[in-house]
Simulated assay, not measured.
Amino acid sequence: METKGLMGGLYKITEWIMRIAGSNLYWVVCSSPILLLLVLGLNYVASTNMPIPFEIYMPMAVLAPFTLFPATAALFSVTRKWVMGETDLGITKLFFRSYKDNYKQSMLGGIFYTLLIVIMYVDYEVYMKQFKNMQILGIVMLVLLFFILLSLFNFFSLVAHFHMKVKMLIKNAILLTVLRPFRTLSTFLTAVVIGFITLKFTWLIPFGFATLIAWMAYFNFNIAYTKVQEKVERLRQVEEEGTEQADGEAGEDAESVVAELTEGEDKEKN
């Protein structure tokens, strides 16, 4: 019996490794144009000790909305199912169906985010290098850039979870980042740790780097969103009872986030 239980445990571990590696490999393939350019850029830095040239940044910025963003949204859709307890679904079918279904939303959102990131980065470079007396603005741009990058975790989670207009996806991604900063920061720190380990053991890149980050990001998003829902439900109960006393924080969350989120259709219902 012990041997049978051990074999069953090993089988489950192997199965999970295959799921993680499989979904991660699909992400790598679909994001390959960006990843290849990134590798070229890093090799250039290593060989010349110079920053990545504009000739590499430019095609990366152009291609990202059409490759990296849809691939990442599809990966989040896969990890969403795992977080929701649906672990027996076929990875290949789920990934590419999600890639197709979410392509327009993620592509349009990718265009917006890419343009915003490029503008903020250029502003940062200009203020820090060309206007020495305005470096404070460069620091502000850097902080805003970091914040926008953090909101991407919520953006991809929202794309995976809701049928919603792109404008609302972006708005709620930013609002959730403001209202639940520690959850988002914990996701970022996890991504940094996974990235550090991957840099040390580069052979891990095809086998779990992106999937593990997406899994943790959606896990944190799900907890944050559930808490917001609970606060809204308490607020609604107070309103139904006709009591004027309301939780100020719940009211703030309701007005700023969940009112918009409830307009979207939960993909779990489909």
Results as ranks from 00 to 15, higher is better:
Ile197Ser: 07
Lys104Asn: 07
Phe182Gly: 00
Leu68Lys: 03
Glu255Ile: 12
Arg236Asp: 14
Thr92Arg: 14
Glu2Met: 13
Glu241Ala: 15
Phe76Gln: 06
Phe147Gln: 11
Met107Arg: 12
Ala74Ser: 09
Ile20Asn: 02
Gly251Asp: 11
Leu169Ser: 03
Gln105His: 10
Val232Trp: 10
Tyr26Pro: 06
Leu36Pro: 03
Leu35Tyr: 13
Ala246Met: 09
Phe155Asn: 03
Gly90Ile: 06
Val228His: 04
Gln245Val: 15
Met128Asn: 08
Gly8Thr: 11
Ser77Phe: 02
Val143Met: 12
Thr67Trp: 05
Ala210Leu: 00
Gln130Cys: 11
Thr211Pro: 03
Met1Gln: 11
Val122Asn: 13
Gln237Arg: 05
Tyr57Pro: 01
Pro33Met: 13
Ile111Gly: 05
Lys4Met: 08
Gly41Gln: 06
Arg236Lys: 15
Asn220Ala: 14
Leu158His: 01
Asp123Val: 02
Thr190Arg: 00
Glu255Cys: 11
Lys100Ile: 12
Met120Cys: 10
Lys200Glu: 04
Val238Trp: 01
Leu36Tyr: 15
Ser32Leu: 15
Trp203Asp: 05
Met134Lys: 14
Tyr225Arg: 10
Met164Cys: 02
Leu145Ala: 09
Val140Asn: 01
Phe156Ser: 02
Ala217Leu: 05
Asn49Ser: 15
Ile20Gly: 00
Glu239Ser: 10
Asn133Ser: 15
Asn102Met: 12
Val140Leu: 15
Tyr44Asn: 08
Glu265Arg: 14
Arg80Met: 07
Leu6Asn: 10
Phe69Asn: 02
Glu244Ala: 14
Ile56Thr: 07
Leu204Asp: 00
Met134Trp: 09
Leu212Phe: 01
Gln105Cys: 08
Met164Ala: 05
Leu261Gly: 02
His161Asn: 11
Ser77Gly: 13
Glu268Tyr: 07
Glu240Thr: 08
Val45Glu: 15
Thr211Cys: 09
Glu268Lys: 04
Val122Cys: 04
Asn133Ile: 06
Glu239Thr: 09
Val257Cys: 13
Val118Pro: 03
Leu38His: 11
Lys4Thr: 13
Asn24Met: 04
Lys12Met: 07
Phe188Gly: 10
Glu252Gly: 01
Ile174Cys: 10
Glu241Val: 06
Lys93His: 01
Thr184Asp: 00
Leu152Asp: 01
Val238His: 02
Leu36Gln: 06
Asn24Ala: 06
Glu55Val: 15
Gly248Val: 10
Ser31Tyr: 01
Val166Gln: 09
Gly109Cys: 04
Thr184Gly: 01
